[in-house]
Amino acid sequence: MITKEMLARFDELNRRKKDLEAELDKLKDLFHQYFDTAVGQNEKGEVKIDSYKLQRQIRRTEKFDTEETVKRLEELNLPELIQKKPDERKIKSALELQIIKEKDLEGCLSEKVTAAILVKKIEA
C-alpha cells in the first residue's frame, strides 16, 4: 500500500538527491580545472592528499564521420566498405503515404520501453 508518508519521503529524498548531484558536479568541475592546469587538458592525472587519492581517467572513443567517410570510400571505389542501413525517416514517410504497409515490415521494428516514477508535492 502506498501512503502519503512514502510519497513525502520520496519527494524529500529526490530533492536532496538533486542538491547533492549539483554539489558533486561543482566539485567535479573544480577537479577537472585542477588537472587541466596541473597536467594538461584531456590528460590523466592523480593526486594524493592525506588518506585520499583523486584520479582523472581519460576515455577516448573514435568514430568515423559517416558522410565524409562514405564520400571518401566512394571516391576510392571501395563500396564493399560501406554498410547499408535502413533510413527510418523515409520508412515512416512511406508508411504514412501508404507506399508500404506495416505488415510488410512485420518483425523488423523493435521497441524499447522505459518506465519512470515522478512524485511532486502539490501545494494546496
Rank of each mutant, 00 (worst) to 15 (best):
A38V: 06
I82K: 04
E67K: 13
I82Y: 03
V47S: 02
E74P: 00
N42I: 06
E74G: 08
L27W: 10
K112W: 06
K17W: 08
L95M: 00
T69A: 01
F10V: 08
V113D: 15
K121M: 08
E106S: 09
Y52E: 13
A94S: 13
I82E: 05
E62L: 11
D19C: 00
E96T: 10
D36A: 00
K4Q: 13
A124F: 10
F31R: 10
K90V: 04
A124S: 12
E12M: 09
S93H: 09
T3W: 01
E96K: 15
L76F: 04
F31K: 10
L20M: 13
E23A: 12
V39G: 00
D104P: 00
L78T: 04
S51H: 15
K85N: 14
E21F: 05
V70N: 03
L7Q: 02
G40K: 01
D29A: 11
M1P: 11
L76Y: 09
G40R: 00
V119W: 01
I100T: 04
L24Q: 13
M6S: 07
E102Y: 09
K44T: 07
E106Q: 05
Y52W: 13
K53M: 05
N14T: 07
R16W: 06
K48Q: 12
E5Q: 15
I99T: 08
F10A: 09
K121D: 11
E106H: 02
L118V: 14
I117L: 15
D65L: 12
V70H: 02
Q33N: 15
L78A: 13
G107M: 01
E43Q: 11
K103D: 11
E106R: 05
R59D: 15
F31M: 14
F31N: 07
E80C: 02
F35L: 02
K71F: 06
L27K: 07
L95T: 02
L13S: 09
I2L: 15
I99H: 12
R15G: 10
L105E: 04
K84Y: 10
N77W: 00
F64L: 15
I117Q: 06
K112R: 07
G107P: 01
Y34W: 05
P86A: 07
E123N: 14
E23S: 12
P86L: 04
K28I: 14
C108L: 12
L13T: 01
R9Y: 08
K71D: 14
L78P: 06
F64G: 06
K84M: 11
F35W: 02
D87I: 00
E43I: 03
